[in-house]
Design a binder for these strands. Structure first.
Lengths: 208, 208, 208, 208
DNA sequence: GATGAATGAGTTTTCATTCAT
DNA sequence: GATGAATGAAAACTCATTCAT
């Protein structure tokens, strides 16, 4: 009984927390960290400002938590995409597709995500960058190992270091996603993952 | 004599302006627009704050001028690189090399540049984004036309729309540059442009 | 209970607001709008400056509210004085007396009042002047109609247009009040309203 | 020769001084003391700002000089009007007329004049008020003595103390002038001085 | 435990005044 | 003697954070 009661309270707390984070995400994404006040967030989330501070130590902390939690979901999803096939080509295909879907569903977050992973929002706070970039680096290594395996198995030609290939592929995806975020009508990120992968797979010039 | 005197003053003015912009660049790059105060900039530039305001209408204006002047240099240089050869492959080589050099020489600016072209800094101000992105779009089109010509002349295989190829190549360069900016020791951006171009040219898998 | 609690808070708010307005009035009256800083007002009112801004949008707003609220009381009182009698002569007597009392009790406000109704404070802000002058104009018309009625009823000779008479009487009162404000010892505004009214009623020269 | 040269320089100086004062008057009148910068005045007068400071110790001093010089002219003219006739009634007539003309020709100054004599601009500076008010008091006494003489000679009935009569007449003039300044179209200040004087002379009610 | 009123440090910006040229 | 660039003190206003109710 006690336990259940506590757990119910805990759930309620979680729900409130999510509402706060959602309000914050929507505002940060729309206006940027420095142009959003805690007042504004508390109003949008329909909580008192004091309550906000019960959940998050300060504005920085709120932002940090927001970014890290979402980024975690991102990286988990993308890593999962790489696991969801035996064939390396299929893995990459899954990854490109998953990245597209993920971003499509989280448009407002991507802007912040780009800001953070691209180092653009400088040091809104020092710590955050490091954590999130370490995580991003981990993912790049996972992606690189897919290329490495493919090369080992002679599925891919060794045209560059696996890590470089990982960087290249992820960058291309980001490039297209960025264009799409900018102008969703333009629909820059191709539905068919092979549009992106072909650039990688086929090569521009004939081998002699 | 009069003329010379005037011109000397003008030169002095220019020098001061450049010093202010340099101080601002270094601070914005290090801490981000909102974490730098005009006081700070004026101190770093070793001018009184009032003098800063004689040169720039306000903080926004200072930032805008800073970004636009430098971005213009960037885009001009990159466009020039594409002109500096007859052969399309050579053009791309020039571009990749030029981009690397340009960024190497302007590390502190790149952070801001990424922030702006990647849309990361949200709406620090509305107008700026538009101008700089239009300019970026123009450049992408120029790059795309190199691919288009290469394809027409059967130098390149048509593995994707020229604009997509442009986006892809520029994104890869940016990806590497970003890694390098993050950790200059890592030296992620390859000295030899072909390291990057090979990823493009050769293709991962053998044509059947 | 809830209701009472709310009402108590509301009352507390009102009290604070009045304290702020009182502090502002005393300072504005003593030093003039531009020579008083919000800092100063907040200190005199014994609130933090932020609290001041919770109550008033900005300095202009604070001033506007101050003037308009008090001016309203003034105009209401003076208009009431004109209603408080049937006889026109008695009405004027009431008005002259009321004006004297009103000003005696609000010395520090009169300086500002003169500044505003006399157009002296130029454009501290555009809107205020208009509102307060319109109100002043309305009052002059009310006063004029007393003269008009008096003339219709042959109580007064028609020595000038009623509106002119209103302007003249109000001006004389203001003239004496001004002298008194300048030097309260001199006691320029006569206790007996007839001292002023006689100037009006009797005429300097005998009719022939 | 030397002498003449010096005197020419002196004249040139005077001319410059007048230009500065004229520019200042026009700006102060339009925007108010605190909304006009020394920069602005120097630009309007077409002198360097440093030159302005050669002529006037500081902004306050410039204002003070401006007010006092013009006020002097005013008071001299009005006093002269009172001398320009033998008959007291004629004197008053001259005065009312002169005041109207004076103000008509110096509209932009009147606003400042009202501000100062009405105590409206509080203490833009402490000293000014005193000097100018003393001067104003002197004039009121001169005017009062006209009434006194008139009464002695049985030209006027003694309906109030001469000083009160002076205050009353001047106040009425000011009241009309104020209305006229506010809305020059309305033309509140009557061309014929008797319109104003009648209010004084005839009296509202018949003597019994 | 939730609330939101109160706080005041910190930011941008203006402008009177000085002084080297 | 004139100039106007440079100065920096001072003002309006914001907003993250605290804490009494």
């Amino acid at each position: 009984m006690e336990n259940k009661n506590l757990s119910r309270r805990q759930k309620e707390k979680q729900r409130q927390r999510q509402e706060m984070l959602a309000a914050a995400l929507s505002l940060f994404s729309e206006k940027g960290y420095h142009n959003v006040s805690m007042q504004e967030i508390s109003e949008k989330a329909e909580f008192a400002i004091g309550t906000l501070y019960k959940f998050f130590k300060n504005k920085e902390d709120l932002y940090k938590v927001l970014i890290l939690e979402r980024a975690e979901v991102f990286h988990v999803s993308l890593s999962a995409a790489l696991e969801n096939a035996d064939d390396e080509i299929e893995k990459l295909r899954n990854y490109v597709k998953a990245k597209g879907e993920l971003f499509r569903e989280n448009v407002s977050f991507i802007r912040i995500y780009f800001a953070e992973t691209r180092g653009a929002s400088f040091n809104i706070m020092a710590g955050l960058d490091n954590e999130i970039r370490k995580r991003y680096g981990q993912f790049l290594n996972t992606l690189a190992s897919v290329f490495e395996n493919g090369i080992k198995q002679k599925k891919f030609k060794k045209i560059a270091k696996p890590y470089y290939l990982a960087v290249a592929l992820d960058s291309i995806c980001n490039g297209f996603l960025f264009l799409w975020v900018e102008d969703p009508e333009f629909n820059a990120y191709p539905e068919d993952p092979d549009t992106i992968l072909n650039i990688f797979f086929k090569g521009l010039i004939d081998p002699i």
